[in-house]
Amino acid sequence: MVSAFTPQNISAFGPLVLMAIMYQLVGLLCTLIVREVVYVPRDFRWGIIVMGVISNWGNLPTAVVQTMAKESPFDPSTDVDLGVAYIAIFILIMNTTFFALGVHKICGWDFMDDHMLEDPIPFKERWRRRAANATSFYGRLRGKNKSVVTEDPELPPSPVLSQVTTTAVPSRWRDLPLMAIVSMTVIKMIIVPVFAIFVVQALQKHTSLFPPAQKIRTFVVILLSGTPAAANQLVVTQLLNPAGTAHTLASFLLLQYALMFILSTALAAIALYIVK
């Protein structure tokens, strides 16, 4: 990475770091929405957040860039090494976030009693109770409502309301977290790339962060927006789980990597169209 940078292209370091952090923040926001809206198994309600933040920015995109940069419209004499150097910036941010900032420890929270989340009550009921508590709180502030809120929306429901939610949630949501898996796949490999394409095209037009002449920089930024989740999360989860397994995580990863061949190819084609 060091040898590939020169005084002429070192200015790319800042924009690439910015994009890597933006990808992680967008992934975090989307996974929080997924965990709120659809059912996620109890042994993956923290792990799904790690999956949204940490992407595979290692050997997978490196192999693609090393191959693609040898052909037109890139310059094989410089863009192969430069493309790998640009990817190394994303790897730096990924490892800093995952290990140095301690995000890898979240993989074990699903198996610790003091961090384990209860199975959520249905989405509509959960937000109905939150709205009711918010209204009651607002009324108490204005002195119009002196009643005490007896139900905390974040605490387990009362025994009667458990009876209600047990019948309200279809068994298929409990047995097959298919909607969560599909949602994560859509986020990681469709929504974030669309976000990246719009951002790159708008910087190209109004700033020098992604100048059209720096084709390999634009290609790398778009390509790395649609990679699957990092596979090293699987190893860390197995190490932190007392049982030494990561079955739920494996099912989430399986669909992403199965669709990678189609979606990543399409994303690379779109990136080539833009840089040309």
Rank of each mutant, 00 (worst) to 15 (best):
H104F: 11
T135Q: 13
I93L: 14
P242T: 00
F137H: 09
F74A: 04
A230Y: 03
V65Y: 04
G102F: 03
W57P: 00
P73G: 14
F123D: 07
S225W: 04
A269V: 07
R126S: 08
T31F: 13
P156M: 08
Q163I: 08
T207C: 07
G139R: 03
M19E: 07
P120L: 11
N56H: 06
W57K: 02
V37Y: 08
L255S: 04
I181D: 02
Q238H: 00
F90S: 08
R217W: 14
I48W: 02
I181N: 05
R128Y: 10
A20R: 10
A271T: 01
A132V: 00
A134R: 03
A131I: 03
V236L: 08
F219H: 02
Q8T: 09
G102I: 01
S251L: 11
A20K: 03
V80G: 06
A202M: 08
H247L: 15
D79T: 03
R142T: 06
L239G: 00
V38D: 05
A4E: 12
I190C: 11
Y23I: 01
A202P: 00
G47L: 02
S264V: 04
T67Q: 15
I91A: 14
T96Q: 08
H104D: 12
M22S: 15
K144R: 09
P159L: 02
D110R: 00
F44C: 09
T237V: 04
T237I: 06
V186E: 03
F198N: 08
S158E: 13
E36W: 10
V2T: 13
K124N: 05
L249F: 12
I190P: 00
P212V: 03
V221L: 09
I191R: 03
S55R: 12
S136W: 04
E71W: 06
F111S: 01
R35P: 00
P212Q: 14
H104I: 02
P61V: 05
L267D: 02
S171A: 15
L25F: 15
R126C: 07
A20P: 04
M68Q: 14
H206Q: 04
R128S: 13
W57I: 01
G58W: 01
M184H: 07
L272M: 10
E154F: 13
